[in-house]
Amino acid sequence: MQVESLSEITYFGSSLSQYITFLAILIAGAVVGRALSFVYERRLRKKTAATRTEVDDIVVRSLGGPISLLGVVVAAALGRQVLTPTPAAEEILVVVAEILLIVSLVWVAVRLTDGLIETYLGRYADRTESKLDDALVPIVSRMANVAIVAIGVIVVLDSVGYDVTAIVASLGIGGIAVALAARKTLSDVFGGAHILSTKPFLVDDVIEMDDYAGTVEEIGLRSTTIRDFDGRLVTIPNSNVAETEVRNVSSEPTHRTVYELQLPYRTDTARMDRVLELLETTVNGIDGVATEETRVHFWEYGESAMKVRLEYHIADVDRWQAVKDAVNRAIHREFEAAGLEMALST
């Protein structure tokens, strides 16, 4: 009995030589597909560049890469003719070909969607002053791609024999679970959209809210970052910002400052008059104070001291801290020079 040649031994109905021929056809298909993709893009891009519309440019860019994969799919269909597979192997080959075709179509759809969104929505967002649309464009693109890929996965699973109805139902339940788990994130995103659309403050504005105060460094979809007056970066979830009263100091024509000074009851009338005059003169002498809006009043009799109310406005809003510091130092210096004293708070 002669030993059977290795190339004549059959595997799943086809011989090794048949598989080698099939593999050679696949490689040739990949090479031809790549060459066609190169020629396709080089020649058609020149023609589409001369047209007014950009849709044809987007289509050409979208089909360039997938053409290589389509070359493999076509080669697999042609190479199938050299094989004599068993029914089980035949079924596997058909499923693989379907999967490759679906992957090619999904690839085209994703690239086409990205191109259209980036070209048209992105250009529209660049023309507007709002930052909301700039932040939403990549999110819309990503969501569209996820939807396309999800549809492709479902079609692939259907082609291999899975019960798509059960899968879609489970995805619905899973989607609800994900939505509940991401409730905080979604709340932050909607808060960011609200801030970007209503513009209660902008980047570089000085704001005050709850226990935070500082300069806005960044407004994102999920959070807002401010640099406080100690130089630290503070990141605040947008849901908190949207639900909190925010004071935009930079939008005010002046920064209003009000506080009370307490004088001991032994302060006589002459000294009280001197205090009121000294406060007004000192405050108005500081650079950055709106002199026409300074108010000083003998306000009330407290339980342990007489109260003087000082109100002044800082015209240079961006320097309000420095101006307030200068005012406080000047008042302390003038009181000390005049021999005036303040009462201790009780």
Rank of each mutant, 00 (worst) to 15 (best):
Y212I: 11
M272I: 14
I139M: 14
V72I: 12
R183Q: 14
V3K: 02
A179I: 03
V160W: 08
A182L: 15
V55M: 05
V323M: 08
I9L: 15
E8T: 14
D133W: 06
I236D: 04
A88C: 01
E311S: 04
D316H: 10
G13Y: 07
F12P: 05
L186V: 15
N284R: 07
T215K: 15
E292H: 12
A322R: 10
D163H: 06
V296P: 05
A28Q: 04
L344R: 11
M306H: 06
T84H: 10
T282I: 03
R45K: 14
E218C: 06
T21K: 11
R319A: 13
R61Q: 11
L70S: 01
L136P: 08
V149Y: 00
Q2A: 01
I99T: 08
G29P: 02
R123F: 10
I99R: 05
Y265Q: 06
R222H: 13
V283Q: 03
I195C: 08
E218F: 14
L44P: 06
R329D: 05
R127P: 03
T86D: 03
A77S: 03
S62C: 10
S345C: 04
A326D: 06
A242M: 11
E341R: 13
Q18R: 00
L221S: 14
I9K: 15
T128Q: 15
V203E: 15
I92M: 02
S104P: 00
Q262K: 10
T84E: 10
L186G: 15
I99D: 02
V168Q: 02
H313G: 00
F38N: 10
S345F: 07
A24Q: 09
N238K: 07
D316G: 05
E341N: 10
A290R: 02
V137D: 12
V283I: 12
R329K: 06
L340K: 04
T294I: 02
H194T: 14
N284H: 00
A193M: 15
L196N: 08
G220L: 14
L278W: 02
T165L: 03
R127F: 05
G175E: 09
S15H: 03
G29F: 02
N145D: 12
R319P: 01
V178K: 05
Y40Q: 07
R266K: 01
T51D: 11
M143Y: 11
A147I: 13
T235W: 11
L132C: 12
R309L: 15
V55Q: 01
E260G: 01
I20W: 09
G191F: 13
A35W: 08
M209K: 09
L105G: 10
V96Q: 04
